[in-house]
Design a protein around this nucleic acid. Structure first.
Lengths: 336, 336
DNA sequence: ATCACCTGGGCGCTAGACTTA
DNA sequence: CTAAGTCTAGCGCCCAGGTGA
């Protein structure tokens, strides 16, 4: 099977290479009849365009690079990564672009890959989904004028630019929900690893204060997100159970660990302690009681990031404001 | 920032474009000193090669396409997909190739993407990880002489070609293990969706027969793999518990569902029923008792598939036999 | 003959300039 | 002037086959 090129089609149809090229690209200058004739032949020959040649000539490829840190797919509960990647994959195609996934390890790797891809015209823009981002990467992108959107994560300094959930409001909504159930002494589990968590904590704090409840630093528990740490925290809190009405776990993974930990200890949820999570992990159905949690608008966030990248930064057609998208409570059985 | 090309470096150093190209590709024909001089300049200018131009000229790209079906990243417990993808990503790089992920939806989509990528020289070989594969895809690859390796899944007719676990032996080992614990009446949960499960069932059957235990068709339970179905099966088996000693769940996800289901019903594991799984999912630690299960050599399987693809099918250097790799038992607490 | 480097053609496609009726 | 094409240069790189010392 020899490779079919425009030349072959030109020879076979008697037209020139440029006419063939124009026809296959549906150029108005070629009469519809000719176009169809050429397309028909191309189809019969199973012609596919040479992507390298097209890119080299056009200096653009209509593809969007999705950059993720390379350990995201190694995490045991990386459902989040998967949801984002598969949503991006779908939505980028809907916008008429090709998605391409790239994993990077560190700043240098990131910079090298990004510049190579942009220089080669292999990507027209980049969507970055990574906790590892520092100011350096963002400044590099700005300096090089590479179109980019930040998805979900971003360094504190540039957090305004990040397409993500409205974490401040979710913290507030969740806390208010607990307060509305007459749960007043609320602990929270968080981490200072990313700005998202800080915002949730801030929302939590303000909700408390607005309800006239004094914010108590000692009720803010810091941990690394993992099921095991959730179990561990349940054991730690076991003795203090009379001082606490509810726990706002800023990530479901801890909340599920809490359910397991407390259940093992014979603590009844929600009778003795209410638990609320954040993220609406699919696993929640594996545990009883079913976790009350909070879901973010993954799909909308992805679409916003993509549209901003394409319409605003690549085409400069319209300005897309960078939204922090509001999520919603998902009521389960773990809150009294 | 104007794009730097070989021409620019040539102009700057006074050498010709071909000398610069050869130097950057470490060609012996250029004296080391010249090479280093040129490389130094290239580095200072932040030169990156134009991938399209290189590929177009060389008709090869040193990249390996990883093809997966597009819904794999949507599954709630797609840890398996993630492990394979991240292992492939790492190991392909170690072999000096670039990994590229492509998701496809159906046969036509698959064929089109594969031929376009091969025609464009964008991939030199392809590793396919998909349940959707039919004879058509394989015959197409063979006809077009595209180098490929089948990973983990493959249509029954070509199952000999698939790099995967030795599912027959795992079925046997697991069943023998149960028998050695004096558990004789063993049910199994399986599906006829893929050849892997059929092989596990066959191993189970042979192990029973070799131990002189009559194979009982009614103890073979068929279901779609999901946690919920595991729970459901626990409820179904509740009344028959005196007839069954152990359950060989051919996928951990059912086994974890069983643990939850039986625990909720007040059935003690392993005292009243022994459970053994298959796949060693990371989630197993979330449940008590910790599941006894079986782990397959994911990494080795991936490496075999990659080496076969590169050394055998691309370079035709050496023949790699297609192994079915043996896994190992992972002892937990769910078997008496 | 070897070393060190250069010339030129070509990969397949695109698009602006040009031609012909 | 238009409609329907064709011509040609060029994208950036690689490499076979030179050339001159």
């Amino acid at each position: 099977m020899e490779k079919i090129t425009l030349k072959d089609i030109a020879a076979l149809t008697g037209y020139s290479v440029s006419t063939v090229s124009r026809s296959l690209n549906d150029n108005d200058r070629i009469p519809l009849e000719t176009r169809n004739e050429i397309k028909e032949i191309a189809k019969q020959l199973n012609y596919t365009i040479d992507i390298n040649a097209r890119n080299l000539s056009k200096k653009t490829s209509s593809t969007i690079g999705v950059f993720m840190q390379n350990d995201f797919f190694k995490l045991p509960h990386s459902t989040f990564t998967n949801i984002f990647w598969s949503t991006l994959h779908e939505e980028i195609q809907i916008k008429g672009y090709e998605p391409a996934l790239y994993l990077f390890s560190d700043t240098d790797d990131f910079k090298y890959k990004v510049s190579q891809l942009f220089n080669s015209g292999l990507i027209d823009g980049v969507i970055i989904f990574s906790k590892l981002l520092t100011n350096k990467e963002i400044e590099f992108l700005k300096e090089m004028k590479y179109p980019y959107s930040l998805l979900y994560y971003g360094p504190e300094k540039y957090s305004e630019e990040v397409f993500t959930a409205d974490n401040y409001s979710s913290g507030k909504i969740i806390t208010n929900f607990l307060i509305s159930r007459n749960l007043k002494s609320i602990a929270t589990i968080t981490t200072d690893m990313t700005p998202s968590f800080k915002m949730r904590t801030l929302g939590y704090k303000h909700a408390l204060e607005e309800a006239g409840i004094k914010f108590n630093e000692s009720l803010v528990i810091k941990a690394i997100p993992s099921f095991e740490n959730g179990v561990e925290i349940a054991h730690q809190l076991y003795k203090k159970l009379d001082e606490i009405d509810a726990i706002f776990s800023q990530h479901d993974i801890w909340a599920l660990g809490l359910i397991k930990g407390f259940t093992d200890l014979g603590v009844k949820i929600p009778e003795e302690i209410s638990i609320i999570g954040h993220d609406n992990l699919a696993f929640k159905t594996w545990f009883s009681p079913v976790l009350t949690t909070f879901t973010i608008e993954t799909k909308k966030i992805c679409i916003d990031a993509i549209e901003s990248l394409i319409d605003d930064k690549i085409y400069k057609k319209r300005r897309i404001p960078i939204f922090k998208t509001l999520g919603t409570l998902v009521i389960g059985e773990s809150v009294r």
